[in-house]
């Protein structure tokens, strides 16, 4: 195994151990989408009518509609949570330990991102399993084809968190950023309502939702769960991932960004 792969394995293992060690975090990561699924969706089922739009070929219940959006929510929260832990790491010094490893900085940051994504994808599958037990079932093959979609979506949202963590100076400021990022991203997307419903509310709202990378991540997962490719969604999600990753590499560049100002 090369030193670079050893470092990747070590970083993923550390994240996994930390995640498993924090049972509260695991539980809250699961409870949050379940509350939406079991409470919110049950209440909204009556209020919202859904027409048949791809990838659905028949009428679906609202619970079924929001499952991909809730997977997106898990990945979004997970991305923010890992970036929160990065801000914490930096204040505590363990980010310094990571960045002084004799490996290129972009690789170390990519390892962090992959580790966070792996944790997020695992949470999604735990959620899908509970949804399945609840009776919300996708085609069997869909659980397999969803994997690459979840990974791409997780990388994009993790990269967003990474970029934010490089610019947020203190833990205290982070709560504000979460409010300004998580809530608008989640609500101004196709996670809870289809885009055509948004159009009824107004063109501007629809355009904002259509431009939101989170919408594309959710649609990518939605189609993949029904074993259908959605190339535009894949393209936009991947593009956003590359842009956010570029931004975070810039933010962690020693010549600029956070590390420079604080040291």
């Amino acid at each position: 195994m090369t030193p670079a792969l050893r470092a990747l394995r070590a970083i993923v293992t550390r994240e996994a151990l930390r995640f498993l060690g924090q049972r509260g975090r695991f539980l809250s990561a699961l409870v949050r989408p379940l509350v939406w699924l079991l409470v919110f969706a049950a209440g909204f089922r009556a209020a919202l009518g859904l027409s048949i739009t791809p990838p659905y070929t028949t009428y679906i219940e609202y619970e079924t509609y929001i499952v991909p959006g809730l997977c997106g929510m898990i990945l979004l929260f997970n991305g923010m949570q890992s970036s929160l832990s990065l801000v914490y790491d930096r204040e505590m010094g363990s980010m310094r330990l990571l960045l002084t490893a004799p490996l290129p900085r972009w690789w170390l940051l990519l390892c962090k991102l992959l580790a966070g994504t792996a944790i997020g994808v695992l949470q999604c599958y735990a959620f899908l399993l509970i949804a399945w037990i609840w009776g919300i079932r996708m085609p069997w093959l869909g659980y397999l084809t969803a994997l690459p979609a979840l990974v791409v979506a997780g990388l994009m949202l993790g990269a967003l968190g990474l970029a934010l963590s490089s610019f947020v100076k203190q833990l205290e400021n982070f709560a504000g950023v979460m409010n300004f990022v998580i809530f608008p991203m989640f609500f101004l997307s196709s996670a809870l309502y289809p885009l055509w419903r948004m159009q009824e509310a107004g063109d501007l709202l629809h355009d904002i939702c259509a431009a939101n990378p989170f919408t594309h991540a959710v649609e990518l997962v939605r189609f993949a769960l029904y074993v259908q490719p959605n190339l535009p969604a894949l393209g936009w999600t991947a593009l956003a991932a590359v842009a956010f990753l570029g931004l975070s590499l810039w933010g962690y560049d020693p010549a600029r960004g956070m590390m420079g100002q604080r040291a």
Partner: peptide, 9 residues
């Protein structure tokens, strides 16, 4: 964790 970051087997 540190040993692996340093590339030790």
């Amino acid at each position: 964790y540190f040993a692996a970051l340093q590339g030790l087997s």
